[in-house]
Amino acid sequence: MSRWSQYDTDDERLPDGMQRIGYDADTQTYTFRDTDGSIWESAPGNQYGQLHRVSSTLPRYGDDAHDATEPPHEASDDPPTSWRHDMMPLLNWFLLVGLFLLFIFWFISGTPKRVSPTTCPDHSSPYKIKSGDSCWAIAEEHGVTPESLLQHNQGLDCDKLPVGGTVCIPGV
């Protein structure tokens, strides 16, 4: 006989004396009764597996001490959870997304610092940086060395020349 069989019954799967007494289609939980009358429930969606005790010893359904039309339920001592508690993981997610977006907007809206002076000292002339310019091309165009161009423009980054900015060309 194979390991899995479609003919398994409650007698083969449940402990001795345990019997299935109900099924709730809304919560998809099975209800079982033990030999001492304790009520057990399965995890939602599982017919067999881990069971947890719902109530301790109660009279059986047909007994006079209990109404047979009402299933036995025990009131839970746990307070109901609020919607705030249920939404807390989403709050953390939205907080992270919001911080990420703030960082992106701050990064995009930041204007490049203009390290070039607006007025050039004596014996130098201003040059407005155009798109595609490099320190080497500017120095060669005006007949100076790139080193002297960098000495007259302290803090100038040749890798990030600001288009529209001004550099001072040392006089020859």
Rank of each mutant, 00 (worst) to 15 (best):
I108S: 02
I108C: 01
I108Q: 07
I108P: 01
S109E: 08
S109R: 13
G110H: 15
G110L: 12
G110Q: 15
G110V: 09
T111L: 09
T111H: 12
T111R: 12
P112K: 08
P112L: 00
P112I: 03
P112G: 06
K113V: 12
K113E: 12
K113T: 12
R114D: 14
R114C: 04
V115G: 10
V115H: 08
V115R: 09
S116D: 09
S116P: 06
S116R: 08
P117V: 08
P117G: 06
T118H: 11
T119R: 13
T119S: 11
T119V: 12
C120E: 00
C120Q: 02
C120K: 05
C120N: 03
C120L: 04
P121C: 02
P121D: 09
P121I: 01
H123P: 04
S124V: 00
S124I: 03
S124T: 14
S125V: 12
K128H: 14
K128I: 11
K128T: 15
I129N: 06
I129L: 09
I129T: 01
I129F: 04
K130Y: 04
S131Y: 11
S131Q: 13
G132R: 05
G132A: 05
G132P: 05
D133V: 07
D133Q: 08
S134N: 11
S134C: 04
S134I: 00
S134Q: 06
W136G: 10
W136D: 14
W136R: 13
A137M: 07
A137Q: 11
A137S: 15
I138G: 00
I138D: 01
E140Y: 10
E140A: 14
E140N: 15
E141N: 12
E141L: 09
H142P: 01
H142L: 02
H142C: 04
H142I: 01
G143E: 02
G143S: 05
V144H: 01
V144C: 03
T145V: 06
T145D: 07
P146M: 08
P146A: 08
E147G: 07
E147S: 12
E147L: 10
S148C: 01
S148D: 11
S148Q: 13
S148P: 00
L150W: 03
L150H: 10
Q151R: 14
Q151D: 13
H152G: 06
H152I: 13
